[in-house]
Structure formats: C-alpha cells, structure tokens
Design a protein around this nucleic acid. Structure first.
Lengths: 138, 138
DNA sequence: TTAAAACCTACTAAATCTATAGGGTATAAA
DNA sequence: TTTATACCCTATAGATTTAGTAGGTTTTAA
C-alpha cells in the first residue's frame, strides 16, 4: 500500500507541474486545493526539496517550484524518495536490497522469483511515466 | 511491502505443493525447513485452510494438504487472502475498493491513473503465475 | 493410554503511519 | 524599518499494524 505521504507528495508535484508559469506555489494553496493537512504537506514538500525535486523561496510571494522539467522526472524516482523500495520484498529491491533472514538461498525461493517479476512489471510502468504524463490538466 | 505473513504463507503453500504424494504435511516440518516461527506459521496455515486453499487432518500423522491442484491456484487469489488488496491505493482496488477522502473526482486524480497501470501490471504477473509455476523443485 | 498434531484465544512489544504543536528564520512589501 | 508571509525545523502523540508469544483444548493414530 502506498502511504498517504507518497500519495500527497505525488499530488503536490502534479499540482505544481500543472502551473504553466514557474512562479513559486505556496504550500497553503496546494493544501486547500488538494485537501491535504497543511503541516503534513509542508513536511513532504520539504523532503521533496531536500531530495532535489523542488526548489523553494521564502517570504512573501514565496513557495515551491520544480527544478527539472516535468518530462524529466520519472515516477520511479519520486516513489523511491517518498515511499522507499518499489519491490514488495527487500531481497528483490534494486535500490534498497536486504537479505532475508529465513532464506539460505534466494535462487531457490519461490517468493523471490515471483516478486522479481512483479517488481519488473511495476518498474516498467513507473519508469515510463513522468510527472508530465500524470499531471494532465484536470 | 509484502508482510511476513504473506511471504511465509506462499512459501508454505509452495512447500506443500512440492511434495509429490498428497499426504498431510505437518506445520512443524514446514516451520523447520523454511525457518518460520512455528506458532506464527500455524496461524497462517489455519487461515489458508479457512479460506479454502488447504485441508487439514488432526492428530498423529495429521497435517495440511492442498485441496486444489497447484496449477489451479493463481497467485492473485493467494495474495488477496493473505495480504489483502493487490492495488497500491484503495481507490483502484478491484476487490477492496474504497473511495479516497481527499479526492472529489477520481478521474481527475493523477495518482489514480498511475496506480491503475501499476495494478494492471501486477495483476497480469500474479494472474499468470500459479502455485505450480512458483513451486519449482529446489 | 499416550503422544502427536491441529485448533483456538488472548496478549504484547515494536514499529510505522499520520498527523499536530509550537515555534524559528528569511524575505518582500508597506 | 516594521510587518506579514511563507518556508523551515524539532518534538511528540494517538492509532494502527505487524510479528510474533503464551498457554492452553481437541482430535486422532498407534
């Protein structure tokens, strides 16, 4: 299951991407428009800034803006930052690999083989979709 | 992320499916062989029995056995029983649908559209794999 | 009769999620 | 230079889920 944090983060990025001008967008505006708790959203936007997706401007007229073009932002990257691994088990994760305690041999594990297929299917979808693709005008 | 419960459940089913004879397999045997806490495993096997995947026999020489043939058991069905929805958000779940609190219009939601694609990709993989496919002899 | 094995209920420690509280800091406009 | 704005930061807390553990009861085969 996708956490609310990730879901809100994606919606916020899409909201910012839909704006044609590159003026900073306030957290309060996104919060109201997308029905997200403002304080919670602030922490998410902050994280997106620290991980290089957003820039920010303080003070009156400030807000958040995209650093890269929407078509350059793959959804795999967004989800990895907000949610963590895309894989359903750590032992098939490309970016967050962990060995299973119970598994002496990954290649003999039935779950492992299945989850590699699921991971690749998900990676394929999320890698082909960019922020531009999902931020269609309403 | 797949819960340990689901992971153990799949491994247990695969273990039982690998046995050629249809004699009942004890929880203790699976527990030792797959490095799963026996008590935890018992509760999982019980759930798999109640949901129609396994039959059981009590007393000495008892254990669990498959009710259907491995090739008739789709992994979608197993995961839905043990883990719940396959979709990453409830609003795109076929079997566990729930409306999002924050979303007035699902069709205008960027997350919704993306997650439908992810769901379909996962469903495709999990629907094509049966217990027979993943229970390859070690 | 005894041992084995499924069955059942209740509980719990730890982690995670989803925020909320309460400010601090930098900036722009008046 | 003041003031309002808006980002920035830390701490905390309630709810839920996870991953078990504990301690039994019931059924069956030998």
């Amino acid at each position: 299951m996708l956490s609310k944090k990730t879901k809100y983060g994606i919606k916020a990025l899409a909201y910012i991407a839909r704006k044609k001008d590159r003026k900073p967008v306030q957290a309060s505006e996104i919060s109201e428009s997308e029905n997200i708790s403002q304080k919670f959203l602030e922490s998410i936007l902050l994280e997106l800034r620290k991980s290089g997706f957003l820039g920010s401007k303080k003070g009156k007229g400030g807000g958040y803006y995209l650093i890269k073009e929407p078509q350059e932002i793959k959804m795999t990257a967004v989800i990895r930052v907000l949610e963590g691994p895309i894989a359903m088990v750590p032992c098939v994760s490309l970016n967050y690999y962990e060995k299973c305690d119970d598994c002496p041999d990954e290649n003999a594990c039935s779950v492992h083989k299945l989850m590699i297929q699921v991971r690749d299917a998900s990676l394929n979808v999320l890698g082909e979709n960019t922020l531009e693709d999902i931020a269609i005008p309403q």
